[in-house]
Write a protein that binds this DNA or RNA. Sequence first.
DNA 1: AAATTAAATGAGAATAATTCTTATTATCAA
DNA 2: TTGATAATAAGAATTATTCTCATTTAATTT
Lengths: 157, 157
Amino acid sequence: MRGTRCCDSSWWHGRFRGGGYKITCARESVLAVLSNTNKHLSADDIYMQARSKYPNMGLATIYRTLDILSELGIILKFDFGDGKNRYELAEGFGGSQHHHHLICTKCNRVVDYTDFIDEEIELLKQTEKGLSKKYNFKITNHLIQFYGICEKCFDKK
Amino acid sequence: MRGTRCCDSSWWHGRFRGGGYKITCARESVLAVLSNTNKHLSADDIYMQARSKYPNMGLATIYRTLDILSELGIILKFDFGDGKNRYELAEGFGGSQHHHHLICTKCNRVVDYTDFIDEEIELLKQTEKGLSKKYNFKITNHLIQFYGICEKCFDKK
DNA sequence: AAATTAAATGAGAATAATTCTTATTATCAA
DNA sequence: TTGATAATAAGAATTATTCTCATTTAATTT
């Protein structure tokens, strides 16, 4: 980044270097933004917040960084149906507890739920095992979302 | 649609009228395309195929129709990570058996699987019930996808 | 510590999926 | 058949994301 100093050392440096990537201010600040929220931020949300600290940062860098972080499993990428991808820190990297999403198809409100997760995870593990074997996939991740109409939108009609 | 005749009566007319929508040639042809494939078609794919029969059809109409069909639960909308949404007919409307998807994150190949579905569905039903109650959602749908690296992409590396 | 080198960046142009606008046309109820 | 109204085609507009390239930076080597 031009004209700004930054770069504290932190936990993710090893993982980044292991992936063959350099530690840069831009990458620091994307992770800083994601570490300080439990919301589902879009690339542009992250851009805005990161810029308030590092005004020179470009949006393309945000996207490039998000790609790498996703690839390394440090963040998770979601599509909640509003036309932009959203990101959150993975559990184990400072993100909140493993959860799934309940999405209102009218207003796009998203509820993170952790209830019922344990049985889901258990079943998913078995399914993963079966699928890996049958289709020769190395499975790295799963996505579960429920869709419906939230109380507010239901009342409106 | 201008300058083309069409419109056979069919099963979905009632459901359409029930939703307050009119039966049009454009809508007929979108459904016709989706009824004749088990692939995951994008809006543009559908546009191309529909145009081969009804050359005057506009792309915007495809999108409008897909929205309505999704809302009515006649088709399902998926994001497989390649930047465009994809659609398939729902089971019960002529679509193939209820299935979930296994997606390669390198080449975007998608495998439909029906194995292991029964246990999944059973668990999902219970989860839905719990979620509906706790969060006051009227749940209409769910999404399960597994992500990984397919055999081909794994061998390449 | 300075030089080196390849990766990363910012800026903004390019791309591409989706949505919007408007004048025209088709559906369907009366 | 006709009138009210929803739906359409065409293409412009929007917007998320990717690409390009000259410049800068991180990390390695001297």
